[in-house]
Design a protein around this nucleic acid. Structure first.
Lengths: 155, 155
DNA sequence: TATTGTTATACTCTATAACTATA
DNA sequence: TATAGTTATAGAGTATAACAATA
């Protein structure tokens, strides 16, 4: 029987936390009839107003084809608007509607509160340290993927 | 437009890292015809030999009904074995077959290497600190879920 | 009655590829 | 030709509930 300590295996720890974060916040969004993927899109859009579909896919970690259908559902709920770019007519720019902005405004305080609960007992230095290390790991994995693709990626 | 900084939002950072970890290691497992959920089950089982289905569901963050079908698929591949418990005939104990142990033995070194790549540039103290903080966040979220369920859960 | 696990259903996500339109 | 996005399909996951067996 091979030896392997899950409790010190980073992917396990991250997956576990991610599952709990997702489960808990999904419940938080249920009464607003918003799903977690929708909130991810809204959070990305409220950070930067008009984004291309591919850009959004990268930020939200949602597959482009999945995202395309998700955006259609969000359009039906009048949360977002899609429009062809004037500069490059291949690309589609996505932005929040007024209703989308209003909904995001309702969710953001919950998201903040929720993060505070997840980090309760942490000093602000500890929170910052945790986040910085997650960013470093993300970077390491990105470099890894870039290597495999044969060469460095633009970013 | 609401203000919200994704780059300092913990759920976003965790989701992002989780997505990259999953994507990268899935590729690592592809040539062995093992999926990530299968590996999660195997890793859990190599940590503790015989586990109930519900126990495995908790450890792997996989829904019981999904896990039930996953275990059937793993039985067909002769990686695991299911058997009714003698003590409580309602419960089913899952364990790795010899082939399952052999496969796990092939994967474990890759998993270790893979973790090292994800944590490259980290001192051992930093890695430990990151893991410990993820465990604390997991605990905070568990306490939160327990509260909502009306009262404290056994564990 | 409550619990454990399996099964069924409907819905969503992923992966892949075909397709349209632009560049 | 290459790129951006949409759409279609099949396979797998999730959520829910019904169900069987056992406690």
């Amino acid at each position: 029987m091979p030896m392997f300590d899950l409790a010190s295996y980073l992917p396990y720890l991250v997956n576990r936390v991610g599952a709990r974060l997702a489960e808990a916040f999904s419940g938080e969004l249920a009464d607003l009839r918003i799903t977690l993927p929708m909130w991810r899109v809204m959070a990305a859009l409220c950070q930067k107003a008009g984004q291309r579909v591919g850009e959004l896919a990268e930020v939200t970690s949602i597959e482009v084809s999945t995202l395309s259908r998700l955006l259609r559902a969000m359009e039906r709920k009048e949360l977002v608007r899609r429009a062809r770019s004037l500069e490059d007519a291949r690309t589609v720019l996505v932005e929040l509607t007024d209703a989308g902005v209003a909904m995001t405004d309702r969710i953001v305080p919950r998201a903040r509160l929720y993060q505070d609960l997840a980090l309760s007992g942490f000093t602000s230095a500890e929170s910052d340290s945790l986040k910085a290390m997650l960013v470093r790991v993300h970077g390491n994995l990105g470099a890894l993927a870039a290597q495999r693709s044969g060469f460095e990626r633009p970013a």
